[in-house]
Amino acid sequence: MDITDPMLLRQIIMDHYQYPRNKHAGDAHHNHMIHMASESCIDDIKVWATIENDKITDICFDGVACTISTASTSILTELLKGKSIEEARTLIDRYFDMIDLKNVDLEPLEEAIAFYQVGKQANRIKCATIGWNAMKQIIEESEGKHD
């Protein structure tokens, strides 16, 4: 993907905002749920996941959120669904490195690279990471690390 083409990246964000993937409430088959209601912004989303045998078999989310929160979480659900915990953790770490403007290989992040410049609007970093933080917490919880 050509990250120097802003039109393409904008298209990705617009597409995931206007037609978010996996955006619906979870149900009984999801064994994890995190409610993210940030104190500092308006976004109020819930993320559900099914984790079985160290594998993420399903992710969905629902709630009220801005373009960046919605699109970044939508992209996350597509990217991490079907991945092992280990793969997911590596991708999440890579995503946060990208947000922190660290020099990492962006290719594995697929459409999530649309947010590589989100740091230009510092007050919106939390929007681009809300779903990713939720997933990070879910993984920790599934491993019993969450307190």
Binding site: R10, I13, I68, F115
Partner: peptide, 8 residues
């Protein structure tokens, strides 16, 4: 579109 363009 202008709102999203802020990020590029």
């Amino acid at each position: 579109e202008k709102c999203v363009d802020l990020f590029f």
